[in-house]
Design a protein around this nucleic acid. Structure first.
Lengths: 260, 260
DNA sequence: GCAAAAAAGTTCGCCATCCGAACTTTGCCC
DNA sequence: GGGCAAAGTTCGGATGGCGAACTTTTTTGC
C-alpha cells in the first residue's frame, strides 16, 4: 500500500503539504499503549519509512515536542500547547468551567460540556461530583455523538436531511442492551430533542449511567456546544431529573450563553 | 528577517523538516485574541509568506484540523487530539483525576497536578473547590516554575549545578510584592523544598493565594509530577496547612505513586 | 461613486528539500 | 562467537514546496 498521507492520496494537489500530515501522524501515533517508542515502531505505526520517521522525530525533538534517550522517543508536555491553541481560541471553553462547577455543586452530579466533531462529541470541560465514574474522561476525550445526550441535542440543531446523511455514514456501536442502533430510532430521539430542547440518554453508553443535556447557544442562537448532567438511574428518578435538574441545567446554559 | 522556522535557522541540517515546523506554527498562532483569522493574518503571525500560509491552511483543512468560510479560518476540536496524544501517553495523567478529586473533597480546597517543562510548569489535572479563583486554568496552562510551589518541588529533584544553570537563563517576573526574584533566594526555597519534601509559595503569583506542593514519584523514585493545594492565607493558617493539609497531600501523592 | 492604490489571495517555473534505496550498525539466536 | 535479522543512517536525485509575479478584492481619497 502506498502511504496514505502522501500527496497521492489525501490531497493530490499543489495546495497540500504532505510533510505536515506526516509530522502530525507521528505525534498522533503515541497513546496509552504506546507511551514511548523506537524509531522503527513509530515508522510502522505512522506508515512511514524508517528514514522518514527519523527526520520527523528529529524535527519534533528540535522543536521541543519530543524527548529521547537515543533509543526511545516520547512526547513532551509542549504537545499540550497545540491542543491549548484550540481551547484558547474558543472563548466559550475558556469561561465555562465556573458554570459547570456551580451546577455540579448545586445538584451534586457530574457535569460536562462538549462540542460536536461528527461522528463524535469532544469533551471540552468537566466537573466531577463525588462518586467516581468507571471512566474518567479527560478534556479532548471523544464519545460517539449518536449515543450521547450531548451529541443528540447538538445534532438536533441540524436539518433533517443533514441528519439523514450523517446517520447514513456512521456505524453505531451497541454498548449496552439499551443502545439505540437503528438510524430511524436515533433520528426520532434527535427530533424529540429538537422539539423539547433537551435530550436524555438512558444507559445507552454504560449500564447505570443516565445523562441529560441541553444546548448552549451563541448570540446568534446557534447551538455551539452542549452541557449535560450524568446521574445514576437508581439514585435519581427520571421525574426528579426533569422537574428539578433540567431547569437548573437550562439556567446554567443560559448563563453561559449570556457570558459569550 | 529570514523566517526563523526555515532550515537556515532552527535546524540547518538534513534531519530537519521545515514544513512540519511551519505547520505547527500555523496551529499555534491561534489563541484567545486570534480565534479566527484570514490567510494574511496567519501569514503575518506565523512569519510565513501568504503563499506558504495558504498551503498550510489548506493542508490543515484537508486533514480536518481547520475550518473556514472561505475568508476566515479557525481551528476545529480535532486539534485537541494532538494534545490528547500526550495526555494518553502519560499513564500518570490518565489516572490522577480521581485522586485530586478525593483530596479536594477531603480538604475543601482546589487541587492541581502539573509536570515540569522548564521554564514552566504545565497543568495536567485540576479539581476546583467551591470558591472560584480569579484565574481558571485549563489543562495545558502554564505558569513560571520558579514562582510556583509545584515548580519548586520539581526543581528540587535536580542537582544544585543544574538549578544554577536553569535559574541563570530565566527572567523572573515580579507578579506581587511577595514574589522572589533573586536567583539566590529562589535557590534557597528550592533547597528547602528538597530538604523538607514540600514547597510553599505564599502570594508570590497572586495576592490571596498560597499554595503547598509535594512531588509525585514514579517507581524509580524520580519526581515526575507535583500535586498542590491552593488556599487563601486568611482562611487557612500556615500551621493548619502544615499540620492538617500537608499529611493528606502526602498521602494523595503516595497513593498516586502506588498506582503507577 | 469612481479611480487609484494598497492589501489580500492565487499561480506556476524552478531548485532546495525531502525521499527512500542502499548501506552500516546493533543485537539476538543457536 | 558467527551469522542473520532488524534497526538505524547516509546521500544522490526527483519532486514537493518556495516565493516572485500576477490577479482579485478592499480601502482610500475626493
Amino acid at each position: 500500500m502506498k502511504n496514505t498521507l502522501s500527496s497521492t492520496f489525501a490531497g493530490a494537489n499543489r495546495e497540500y503539504v504532505a510533510s505536515l500530515a506526516k509530522g502530525l501522524a507521528v505525534i498522533r501515533c503515541f497513546d496509552h499503549q504506546h507511551t514511548e517508542m523506537t524509531l522503527s515502531e513509530v515508522a510502522r505505526l505512522a506508515n512511514l519509512t524508517r528514514a522518514t520517521a527519523r527526520r520527523f522525530l528529529h524535527t519534533l525533538h528540535q522543536l521541543g515536542y519530543m524527548e529521547s534517550d537515543g533509543k526511545l522517543y516520547w512526547l513532551t508536555p509542549k504537545v499540550l500547547d497545540l491542543g491549548y491553541s484550540y481551547l484558547a481560541s474558543q472563548p466559550l471553553i475558556e469561561r465555562v468551567q465556573p458554570y459547570t462547577k456551580e451546577l455540579c455543586d448545586a445538584i451534586g452530579e457530574s457535569c460536562s460540556v462538549s462540542v460536536l466533531d461528527f461522528p463524535d462529541v469532544v469533551y471540552v470541560a468537566r466537573t466531577l461530583s463525588h462518586q467516581i465514574m468507571s471512566v474518567s474522561l479527560n478534556v479532548g476525550a471523544r464519545l460517539p455523538a449518536v449515543t450521547t445526550s450531548m451529541g443528540r441535542v447538538l445534532l438536533a440543531a441540524r436539518g433533517d436531511e443533514e441528519i439523514d446523511e450523517l446517520l447514513a455514514k456512521v456505524s453505531v456501536e451497541r454498548f449496552t442492551k439499551h443502545t439505540l442502533v437503528e438510524p430511524a430510532q436515533i433520528k426520532g430521539e434527535i427530533q424529540m430533542a429538537r422539539k423539547k430542547g433537551y435530550a436524555i440518554c438512558n444507559q445507552e453508553l454504560e449500564i447505570g449511567l443516565r445523562s441529560l443535556a441541553v444546548p448552549i447557544r451563541n448570540r446568534q442562537g446557534k447551538a455551539v456546544a452542549a452541557i449535560n448532567v450524568s446521574s445514576q438511574p437508581l439514585k435519581v428518578s427520571e421525574s426528579k431529573l426533569l422537574k428539578e435538574i433540567l431547569p437548573q441545567l437550562r439556567e446554567a446554559a443560559r448563563k453561559i450563553s449570556d457570558a459569550l
